[in-house]
């Protein structure tokens, strides 16, 4: 494998966003790019990352390899990279280390690190392609604010999407709160629009602790996409460049 990333910042931010949710992960490398799928310890949430080969230049993967990496170790090494360093990942066949180099564009500074790999036999879950009943695209900062504000009142949030819009409601010991958003197009700045597409009304309840955790990825994209259908996990997707993405799936809570 040889994969060169123009900006180390993307990998730094992706790892920073998931390192508190999952610990040991397989980075599955093949000719379409680098994928990662992992569940949190309680098997309530699933992270699915895909860094397409187009996000790298150059990208070469002669044989499929799984790089078992502890994210705490990877975080320690990535801390040594500046956001605008050129980052290159290298690994041989049946590797026992993954090699990372950070080149600073202006000065002739080159750092090189090897991280020991682990054998991680992670069950790979089949994520079915779903036609979601409701898709909401909104500023990632707005979603972060909603989850943060409501998590102060309760550990669960009910998300209800109708043709009027989407409503986040929570009730807790000190009281209750709700945030309602309607379809809104910001003519000056499309990144601030709220787009809602709905084929049928949905209403589900989720853990706010996990949603707040997912919002660590807000730095990756100024928009976030929420996909909902009744009785299936919520999809929270942060789109990256070249159709790469970081997706979080969260199982719903049932029964009030």
């Amino acid at each position: 494998l040889e994969a060169r990333l123009e900006q180390a910042a993307m990998l730094k931010r992706v790892v920073d966003a998931i390192k508190d949710l999952v610990q040991d992960c397989n980075f599955d490398c093949n000719d379409s790019g680098i994928a990662l799928q992992a569940m949190d310890n309680s098997h309530v949430a699933l992270v699915s990352m895909m860094l397409k080969s187009e996000s790298f230049s150059p990208f070469r993967c002669d044989r499929n390899i799984a790089l078992g990496i502890n994210l705490t170790s990877l975080t320690k090494v990535l801390r040594a990279a500046q956001g605008d360093d050129i980052l290159t990942l290298k690994a041989e066949d049946a590797p026992d280390v993954v090699n990372l180099t950070f080149e600073s564009p202006e000065s002739d500074r080159l750092s090189e690190y090897d991280i020991k790999l682990m054998d991680i036999d992670q069950e790979h879950l089949g994520i079915p392609d779903t036609e979601y009943a409701a898709t909401i695209t909104l500023p990632s900062s707005e979603f972060s604010r909603i989850t943060r504000d409501l998590s102060a009142l309760s550990e669960s949030v009910a998300i209800e999407c109708t043709k009027e819009g989407v409503k986040f409601t929570c009730t807790g010991d000190i009281g209750n709160g709700s945030v309602s958003l309607r379809q809104h197009t910001n003519v000056e700045n499309d990144a601030k629009s709220v787009d809602i597409s709905l084929t049928e009304p949905v209403a589900l309840t989720f853990s706010l602790k996990y949603l707040v955790n997912f919002c660590k990825a807000a730095g990756l994209s100024d928009r976030v996409r929420l996909c909902l259908s009744n009785e299936v996990p919520l999809l929270v997707e942060y789109g990256l460049s070249n159709n790469s993405y970081l997706r979080f799936y969260l199982a719903p809570k049932i029964g009030d």
Binding site: A45, L46, E123, L125, L250, A251
Partner: peptide
């Protein structure tokens, strides 16, 4: 109190 489900209930092993 609503009860939390696990992801495996929805995403089976392929």
């Amino acid at each position: 109190r609503p009860s939390q489900q696990t992801i495996g209930k929805f995403f089976g092993n392929p």
